[in-house]
Structure formats: structure tokens, C-alpha cells
Design a protein around this nucleic acid. Structure first.
Lengths: 345, 345
DNA sequence: TATTAGCACTCCTTAAAGATGAGTGCTAAC
DNA sequence: GTTAGCACTCATCTTTAAGGAGTGCTAATA
């Protein structure tokens, strides 16, 4: 059975109302709230139908209705097709901080949390198949070497290496040439055992040092792998009574504190269901990849900082989330971020 | 009026008991709990005295007693003088991660939180009057320069600088020499305008580049200034009913999420009241420098990673904190950290 | 036929009213 | 100085009742 215009409007009214109040909404409220000019009795009949169709549900007899996951879903799908455009001046805020990507992202997270009153999370972009761009050893002092590695995306890693014996200046130069000749332009998977063997041979007595440096490279690249996540506004969940009972709140907050669970969310790119614009995905209740969030809704968006290098931004809140605002904000943010990254490069 | 042995023992019993249960403790409980072999009636008389002296208090008539801040204070002071020594094998845990100081400290925070079931925080050590140890410019490619700065304490900072025109290799070399000659061994306050002027003169057409690099240095050092704080186990506060009502919990959690308030705690080194060993300080209730923590107790300890370079570790929990354990754990931890830093340098 | 008014009914929420019990203070006896 | 005993207080828990929001159904209406 298809929903006619009127049922749709009523459903929408129920959802909207519930978003604001968090209380089950009754027929009389809808009757007044909408411009349908129908009596509560008529609404009741329609609501009864909607309940039968599993879009809304009564928490108990003689209570108003609240949307089911299916109801939210319909609402979201419907709403998404409408043009949402709130050009905000988020941009200004961002420009100030656009210097270091970590700080920028942390800032983005905060901005989102403050703007929406939900919890936000931002993942650091994942560089895949990063190539080594540049390697350099320098003497800091007699017994300390500094190894600097630049990989694609201008990620710079460094490590201090302690030496037992002072090193010849010429040797440092030689090693530098050796390292760069061998490694430049290579991707981590291409640095294999036979290559390492060759390098060590050429390094002669310093073969152990070369080994160490390669370790640093591996570590540097690897570190980037286990993707970092920045969160903000975790305490916002306490604003919503339906999430803030001791048990749930505690679990949720713990998840945000520990963060490692969140990677599941970030990695869950379900291309099939992906939304049209900018990869915005909405998970409602059980749809979420995370069990702890079964009473929440999660909205994620993908941002791209350069070809093939992307990260995710997410909002976690109660099911009665203000989807319009969240999706709108995320969309604007995506545009802004795009801009910033384009102009930067 | 001085407390006699027996009163002290009773007070101690009240505190201990309350630490465990979180409930007001009655006379009968004490009568059984201690080895004083006194009837509950006697205990009642003594408790009545203790109440008059403001060491304990009744939340309401016909309830047991709970310690006042003053009572806790006496307990802590008394307990601290006793030798607490629980050599734990925290060490093992730490060694694994002792690589990057950020990771180490984060790990310390987590370890503490897990071990104590309270919330922990660790501040990154503050390097004062850091001297520039080494500066290096390298060409990454035609239009990108990499500036690396090593400052005392082996803190490495780097920044990619985009060039409009490719740069001569010789020039890079020259600039490197220039930078190092001028800057090595200098402290930030010593890099003044006249010095900068001189350097720019010598750099000729690249004076703007020198300016940029100096900016990077300033930024690098400055960044280190606003001290970072790592926290762990913030959700632990929800374990304690007296802290976990919506209002308090929310404020506390927010404080831990935002962190910037915490600097007040970290910076509050009150040398007057400092504890004998290793600068352990205990703030009970209102004694805390932070208003939000007026219902908590805070224990902080200072660690030193090298002469004059120190950071702080803190534990925040309910007033009925297991002071013995916390102080003990902190002491052990201090020893371990000392060890690690000594061996590393 | 679709809409609406009216009414009985359900069941959550809140408040009030006991019942319970832990713990005290006091007194009198040991 | 210590202790047993007992009346008394007051939070907490349980029960009960009142209130009210909202529904479903039926019958009347346009």
C-alpha cells in the first residue's frame, strides 16, 4: 500500500514534532500543528493506518505515537530529495585554523558539535599506497642522527636515532644518496626484502643503520594507517533523556572516549545505499554498524582532500535527530572543506 | 582538643568504610568492623564527639556518618606518613610504549585510569627556555622546501614551505649554514629583532624565506607552550553515584572533554602544602582549584623527565577515593617514569 | 463516503499515605 | 567508662489513589 499525500504529511508532522519534544505525539497535537484542517478523530484514523504499516508505533496503549526506524527512514529519504541549502559562515571559522590538518579537523569536529548539539567525529584522511617522496638523514650532534621522511601528501615523519659512535660527515652524505636513490617514488609494498638486502649490502658497515631507518619508514607509514579519529561534543548525548540513562550514556561515552570502536563506523562505506550528494549516509537505529548506537542515529559524510584521499565526518545523536539541519550542515561543510583543500594545494 | 588514639581509629574506620560503600556508616558497623571491641553505644558516643569536632557529619538525623572534608584531610595526612609501597609491574606495560612521548603519556593516563577506576590526566612536560639545537632546510622537490627544527629535548618540528621559483642547490646549502650559525644554541627569547635583521641582510634575495622559517620556529616553540593534556577514564566518574547525577556528571565530563580548564589544576603547584615525597598533592572537595570538582578529590603528582622539565599526573575521583591506593600507584609510577626517562637519555 | 463529535477505556505519571528499617540519643544499669 | 535497651527520627520503599493524555469505537453529520 502506497502512502497518499495526506498520510505522508501526517507522518512528517509526527516525526517533526517528536524531534522537538522527544515525547510521543498525539492526534490532537497533529490536528493543530498541521495545516490540514482535520479533526483529531480523522488524524487518529490515519495514524492507526500508519501504525499498521509500521511507520509509527505506540509505546503503550493510550500514548501518542513515535516514529519507528522505518518511519524515520521514509522521512529522511523524503527530506533528502528536497533542496537543503543553508550557506553558513562556517568558512570564516575554518580559515583561521587551516594550518595543520590535525588542528583543522579537530576544529571541524568542534564546530559541528557546537552547531548541532550532537556528538561529532572526524577521521583523519587515509592515504593509500603512499609513496616515499624524500628521505633525509642529518647530524644533530655527535651521537644523534635525525631521519626525516616525507611521503606523499606532504606527510612528514621524523625520528631521532642514537648512535654509539660519531659518524663521518661524508658517510651521512653517502647514506642520504643511497636512501634516496633506492626509495624515492616507491610505495610501501614495493619495499621488499630483496631491495632491503641490496641496500644493506651497499651500506656496508652501516647496514644496521639502514635497517633502523627502514623501520622508521615502516613505522611512519604504518602509524598513518591506524586511522585517527577526532571527536567533539560527546557530552551532548546527555542532553537527550532517551540516551542519558546511566547504562546507555555510559556505554556511548566510553565508545567516544576510546574511539577505536568508531573506526567501524568510519570504514562502513556502503556504496549501495549511498546518498546522491557527497556520499552522505544515514543510519537509523539498528542500521548502525555499532551495537552501542542502536538507539541512536548516525549521519556520515565523506570528504576528499585530494584525488583518492578521503576521510569521513560523522554525527551521532538520538533517533529524533534534526536530520534536515544535520544533513544541511554537513553538506555545507563538505563544500567548505573542498574549497580549503583545493586552494591549499 | 586533640584526638586520642581511639577516636582516630574510629575516624579511620568510618572513612575506610565509606570509601568502599559510599553509604553513610553507622555505629554498629564500626563496632563490628574494627578490632576495638567496643559496643555500638560506645562508638556512638565517640562518633558524637567526632561530629562535634567536625570530622564527620550526618546527612540527616538517624543516618550514619560520612567524613567531612576535614575528616578526609586528617585521614589523608595520617595515611601519607605511613610507608606505602606497592611495587607493581606497571613497568613492563610502559616499556613497550616508551617510544614517542605522546604515546607514552597517553598510555600512562590509560594505565592509571584502568588501575584505579578513577579519571586520570597527564600533562605533557613543559620545556622552558628551549634552545634551538639544529635547523635544516632540504629540497623535497622543485617547488617545496622542508624546514626541520630540532629543539632541546629532541622535539622535532617541521614544515613544508612552498616556493614560487625553484631554488638553487647551493643556495639551500648557504641558507642552512646561515641558519645554523645564527640560531644554534639560542633560546627563543634571544632571537630578537636585531638578530633577525642581520640574518635577513645576509640572506639577500631570500630574506623573505628566512622570515618564513623564523616564523616556523616561533610557531614550533609556541605550540609546545600551550600545554597538552591527555586524559583517560573520564567515564569512570559514572561509577560513583554521588557524582553521576545528570548535572554534575555532565559538567565534569565536559571539563574532561574540553581539557582547557584542566590546565588550572596542572598549574596549581602549591609549594607550601606540598607533600614530602615527589610532590604529591591532594585536594579534597573545595580545596580543588576547579569549581566543578568541588565534590571530587584530586590527587596530582609531578614527574620530571630531565632537570627542570616536568609535567604533572593527576587523578580525579569521588571524595571517597581510595587515597592509599592512588597515592601508592602514583608513587610507583613516578619511580618508573623517572627510570624510563633516565635510561632513555 | 469521508469527516467529526462524543464517550468509555487504558495506562502512564504523579502525589499521597502507610510500612519498613537503619541508626541515633538518651537513660539507667553494670 | 562501658553497655544494654528503648523511644524516636527520617530516608526509602511500597501501595494506593487521583489525574490526565490519548486512543478506539460508534453514531451522527455534511
Amino acid at each position: 500500500m502506497e502512502l497518499d499525500e495526506r498520510k505522508l504529511k501526517i507522518l512528517q508532522a509526527v516525526v517533526r514534532n517528536y524531534l522537538e519534544s522527544g515525547e510521543p505525539v498525539g492526534s490532537r497535537t497533529i490536528s493543530k500543528y498541521t495545516d490540514l484542517n482535520l479533526s483529531s478523530a480523522t488524524i487518529r484514523n490515519e495514524m492507526s493506518d500508519l501504525e499498521e504499516l509500521n511507520y509509527i508505533i505506540q509505546p503503550h496503549t493510550s500514548a501518542g505515537r513515535i516514529p519507528t526506524d522505518k518511519g524515520y527512514r521514509l522521512y529522511v529519504d523524503n527530506m533528502m530529495s528536497e533542496k537543503v541549502q543553508e550557506i553558513e559562515n562556517i568558512r570564516e571559522e575554518l580559515d583561521k585554523k587551516a594550518d595543520k590538518i590535525e588542528i583543522l579537523l579537530q576544529h571541524v569536529a568542534k564546530l559541528l558539535a557546537v552547531n548541532t548539539n550532537y556528538t561529532s567525529m572526524v577521521s583523519k584522511p587515509k592515504y593509500k599506497h603512499k609513496k616515499v617522496k624524500f628521505v633525509q638523514l642529518s647530524e644533530v650532534d655527535d651521537t644523534q642522527l635525525l631521519a626525516v621522511i616525507v611521503i606523499e601528501g606532504n606527510i612528514v615523519k621524523n625520528k631521532i636515532i642514537n648512535l654509539k659512535l660519531p659518524m663521518d660527515k661524508d658517510m651521512v652524505l653517502k647514506l642520504n644518496i643511497l636512501l634516496n636513490t633506492f626509495l624515492q617514488g616507491l610505495d610501501l609494498t614495493e619495499i621488499n626484502m630483496s631491495l632491503i638486502q641490496k641496500m644493506k649490502e651497499q651500506a656496508g658497515e652501516y647496514s644496521r643503520l639502514v635497517g633502523k631507518i627502514l623501520d622508521v619508514i615502516a613505522e611512519a607509514v604504518g602509524e598513518e594507517e591506524n586511522l585517527e579519529i577526532y571527536t567533539s561534543g560527546a557530552t551532548n548525548i546527555l542532553r537527550y533523556p532517551e540516551l542519558s540513562d546511566a547504562q546507555k550514556a555510559s556505554e556511548l561515552l566510553y565508545t567516544f572516549e576510546e574511539k577505536d570502536e568508531l573506526t567501524k563506523l568510519i570504514n562502513n562505506t556502503n556504496f549501495g545505499e549511498e546518498m546522491q550528494d557527497r556520499g552522505i549516509q544515514v543510519y537509523i537505529g539498528d542500521e548502525s554498524p555499532l551495537q552501542v548506537m542502536k538507539d541512536c542515529s548516525v549521519v556520515t559524510a565523506t570528504y576528499e582532500i585530494e584525488e583518492g584521499v578521503y576521510g569521513k565526518i560523522g554525527i551521532v545523536g538520538p533517533k529524533r535527530m534534526d536530520y534536515e539541519k544535520v544533513v544541511g550542515t554537513l553538506q555545507t561543510l563538505m563544500v567548505q572543506l573542498d574549497d580549503i583543500f583545493k586552494n591549499k594545494t
